[in-house]
Computed example of a mutant assay.
Amino acid sequence: MGQAFTAFEMLLDIDQRCRQLANELPSQEARLQTWSGIGFGLAGQWYVAPMGEVAEVLHEPHLTRMPGVKAWVLGVANLRGRLLPVMDLCGLFGQEPSSLRKQRRVLVVDHGDLFVGLLVDEVLGLQHFALHSLDLSPPAYLQEGTAPYIQGHFHREQDWRVFSPLALVQAPGFINVAL
């Protein structure tokens, strides 16, 4: 028969085995740092918005049109008792929106007094990139008007442009929607 261990001796044995096995694991510093964002498509290009800048993603809501506004202002929607102005990003940048209406989504920006929805062609889900692979230089091709809102890009299968919805909605001309 084997030797009987006290509860304390068993805990010491478990601790020792855990420490031995932990030596084979990568250290905290060796883990890859990642950058995460919401991926979306717009006029055939892929973008990713920083996680902290998109409050939620919605299906295209029922909208009430507003008279006397620019064509890219689609209207307002009632989102849980709050009026959400919805803007068409393709229209804003002079592009044709996707003809596949079922794939369109609205990225909601809720920051301070700013509460606005940005209609995109499709949402491609949560995207993760190695932080060290962020290229801060402008990507090879940018859609007209998007440059001030692009904060670099990642390359995985193709370029993912880092698009800042917050920078867009804070731009002086964005709020001025009247004709």
Rank of each mutant, 00 (worst) to 15 (best):
R104P: 11
D15Y: 06
V169G: 03
V162H: 02
G91L: 13
H153C: 12
G39H: 01
E56S: 10
A49P: 01
G68Y: 11
F174Y: 13
G52V: 04
Q151K: 15
C18S: 07
Y47W: 12
Q20H: 08
Y141V: 06
K70D: 07
A140R: 13
M87G: 00
A43M: 01
D135R: 13
L11F: 10
L25E: 10
R104L: 08
I14R: 14
L58A: 03
A130M: 09
L166G: 05
V109H: 08
L12Y: 04
L84Q: 07
Q151S: 15
Q3L: 13
A140C: 01
G52F: 05
A22H: 08
S137K: 11
G81I: 00
L124P: 00
S99E: 11
V109D: 06
G91T: 02
N176G: 01
T34E: 08
W46D: 03
V116Y: 12
Q16S: 10
A147T: 10
V73K: 01
L114H: 14
V108W: 08
A130H: 10
L119A: 10
V57E: 00
E144C: 03
V169W: 11
R156I: 06
G68E: 09
G39E: 01
V69T: 14
S27P: 02
K102H: 08
F174C: 01
V120M: 11
G94R: 12
D135M: 09
L21A: 11
K70F: 03
S133N: 12
G152T: 14
R104D: 05
P172F: 02
E29F: 02
F93I: 02
M10V: 14
R65I: 03
G117L: 11
L32T: 15
A77R: 07
G125S: 09
D159N: 10
G112S: 05
H62F: 08
V73S: 05
Q20N: 03
E122D: 15
A4G: 02
A130R: 14
S137F: 10
A171R: 03
G37V: 04
R101E: 14
G41A: 12
V76M: 15
L21Q: 10
F115G: 03
E157P: 03
A30F: 00
R65M: 07
A140F: 04
S164R: 09
D13G: 02
L100D: 15
L166I: 12
L84Y: 15
P97C: 09
A167D: 14
V86P: 01
C18G: 02
Q151F: 09
